[in-house]
Design a protein around this nucleic acid. Structure first.
Length: 263
DNA sequence: ATGGTCGGTGTCCGA
């Protein structure tokens, strides 16, 4: 089973890229973030024709929005609000095999890494704490689970182009990294991509639109993740970040992340 | 220290 996560930054604008990604990866499941469309206007028909008859969507006007596209049918679809808000940042499905797939768009957090003066950063920290509490309350060592999405945190020193220069930049500050790590332990979750690609290797999934010559300067960050439960670890067979997608015409600023499981 | 670029029932806001 191949699962792909991608912050598409408008599913309607980049529907052609999505088709190309589906053909390139032959993915069974695609988790999208920042779809930026209400459910009534989601391009269901086009995506159905791409070979994804099963779709769980949770969108809103202009901002956020998540979707899970699948070749495999769902036994259950759920979504929930976080931090007492109604924004569309989470959707989960249970496959008929019992595997749970969670798709998250964790708040970016704004520019100022101080929760006392920046509500967006405070929201991001609260969101990470809420997720940790939720996982802790749902611990089940036998459960087959995947959590994917745009987490907006680059946890390792090798997940950013310069650890030193990004220590005070939102996405790589110690407080966020510590909360993400605590949330990972709460699962507990295994970082599927770093099981395959050694943590010593630089690895990114996002490059700012503002950076000229992005592939040359390579000032990236690994913000997008696929984590798996302990029970799925023996099935893990591959992981990669599809950097080439960032180079397509009129791209998303994020590259897709793909994980392969032998199921 | 600054400004750079995207997308959206936009001319600001969030990223």
């Amino acid at each position: 089973m191949r699962i792909v996560t991608w912050n598409i930054n408008s599913v309607r604008l980049r529907i052609g890229h999505l088709r190309r990604l589906a053909e390139l990866t032959d993915a069974d499941i695609i988790c999208l973030q920042e779809t930026k469309v209400i459910d009534a206007l989601f391009p269901h028909e086009t995506i159905n024709e791409m070979g994804y008859p099963h779709r769980a969507v949770h969108g809103m006007k202009s901002y956020n929005g998540v979707a899970i596209l699948s070749r495999l049918p769902f036994a259950e679809v759920q979504t929930r609000g976080w931090c007492r808000r109604r924004d569309c940042r989470h959707i989960q499905v249970t496959l008929e095999s019992g595997i749970e797939v969670h798709n998250f768009y964790i708040p970016a957090g704004g520019d100022e890494p101080d929760p006392a003066v920046n509500d967006k950063f405070a929201h991001k920290l609260a969101f990470l704490r809420a997720m940790a509490g939720w996982w802790r309350g749902r611990r089940d060592s036998g459960a087959q689970r995947i959590v994917a999405g745009d987490f907006n945190v680059a946890p390792l020193e090798t997940d950013v182009w310069s650890h030193k220069q990004l220590l005070k930049i939102v996405s790589h500050t110690p407080v966020e990294v510590d909360l993400l790590t605590a949330m990972q332990r709460a699962g507990p979750w295994i970082d599927a991509v770093r099981e395959i690609i050694p943590p010593e290797e630089k690895l990114y999934s996002w490059w700012s639109y503002r950076t000229k010559e992005w592939p040359g300067s390579d000032r990236g960050r690994r913000l997008d993740h696929v984590w798996i439960s302990e029970a799925l670890k023996p099935k893990l067979n591959g992981a990669e970040i599809l950097r080439e997608v960032r180079g397509w015409d009129r791209p998303s600023d994020h590259a897709p992340v793909m994980v392969t499981l032998d199921l």
